[in-house]
Write a protein that binds this DNA or RNA. Structure first.
Lengths: 243, 243
DNA sequence: GACGTTTAAATGTCTGACATTTTGCGCGCA
DNA sequence: TGCGCGCAAAATGTCAGACATTTAAACGTC
């Protein structure tokens, strides 16, 4: 099932790959216990530390979980949406920060994805989600809010919008896009006037969802995208002239 | 910078987290070399194997790469789109397969995301991408194609459609959604008639992109979604009656 | 100055041991 | 008989030291 040819080095990576493939192929079922480290070491004809390094690799991807004690060991993990979110967000954040993704490109992607959710959200949003949206809007309208708090509320607003689609796969996909934008958004200093404009557009979105009007939601999102893009360009320009 | 409180156990996880946080916070720049394993072991007051396990965790997430030899060591990795794709796909695949995500939900998410790309694709698709779409359509029309080959071509078609938007962030986000669906799609047996219908709709999409007609592309995608959904339901129903 | 050799630094791997945690079983006691 | 306590076993977590391997820089020779 999982032999290990004597390819070029890095045994722990090969072993991790073998086990990972077995999990993906369904040869190891969820909650099934893997052989103990000692047994794996014998199977692969390597030492225990090498096996351990392989298991740690898998643990980092939430593919397995380990449990100490008698009848403990490594178990195939049921990948939860929560864990997947976390990985998705860190990966997306790093991807954006390390590849010099421009504000424009990130913004375009984010709003394109959100617009994909809007019709579904208009159809399915719950009253509770609508209330959350309203509450966040109210928070954003408060004067004296720090930029970070404003951004955090913005993230909550948009995540709620996405969750409104009632499709966990969509929510998972978009969690990364929305949250990974936050560092970029945090670079923007929100003036009183820009906050007011954003709150107005957020209100328009919430109104559209309340009326279950997909078209209006799409329009408002487009306007918000354009406005956010303008804010980002101003920041970039100010930074360019200052330098 | 990265001390390590004596929280409850699993030192390697704590160390990995400390380094990961340092990378995300930008305290460690891309291509910067981390201290050697021995130095890290001394800093954190743990043994070298423990440090190694932590580093393997980070390597599994492509956060670092290691290089052997003199002046080798662990370096902060520039997360490339390719690596991110890979992780995204395996995570999404597992999420779908282990959480019993229904065909309907996955399908809805996938086509919602693709429709988000369609307008951008209509605007920006290159001639080369259009040619790829046409070539895949031609391949799909060939008789005697295995279901797996047909599915693979389908994936290529849709990934090209997504890439046509010319936004790498979008491509990254959607790679998971499209590829992770493949195992579910592979459960479908494509009859000659259903293949013909799919090819017709694919052609309609390609035509729309050629004319740069976003509306037509959206319509064709909606029809394809509905048709795919129907196919999936038939399979489920057949499976239910057989059981 | 070019080329081969040495050398040192670092990761990769192994061996063996001990610590810690958790479970299950058996023993003793009421 | 039933209950609880403690001990042993099994497994992971951690450590220490050693050796193997790889790689590039430093050195020496022609």
């Amino acid at each position: 099932m999982k032999i290990d040819p004597d390819k070029k080095s890095d045994l722990s990576a090969q072993i991790a790959k073998a086990i990972r493939d077995a999990i993906i192929a369904g040869q190891l079922m969820v909650d099934e216990r893997l052989p103990s480290e000692a047994e794996l070491a014998e199977q692969f004809a390597v030492s225990r530390p090498t096996v351990r390094e392989a298991l740690k690799r898998l643990a980092a991807q939430s593919l397995i979980r380990t449990q100490r004690g008698a009848f403990g060991g490594a178990f195939v993990n049921r990948l939860s949406y929560g864990e997947a979110y976390g990985q998705q967000i860190t990966t997306a954040t790093l991807l954006l920060s390390m590849n010099a993704v421009s504000f424009d490109v990130a913004c375009e992607a984010r709003y394109a994805l959100e617009r994909a959710c809007a019709p579904l959200s208009a159809k399915r949003r719950t009253c509770e989600q609508l209330a959350t949206l309203r509450a966040e809007i109210q928070r954003q309208a408060q004067p004296g809010l720090s930029d970070e708090t404003f951004c955090a509320s913005d993230v909550t607003f948009h995540r709620t919008l996405v969750d409104g689609a009632g499709n966990p796969v969509l929510s998972y996909q978009l969690a990364g896009a929305v949250e990974a934008m936050q560092p970029l958004m945090n670079m923007i200093t929100f003036t009183a006037r820009s906050r007011e404009a954003i709150v107005t557009l957020h209100t328009r979105i919430a109104d559209a969802l309340e009326m279950r009007d997909a078209g209006a939601a799409d329009t408002a999102l487009s306007q918000l995208e354009e406005y956010t893009l303008g804010l980002g360009r101003d920041v970039m320009q100010a930074r360019a002239t200052r330098a």
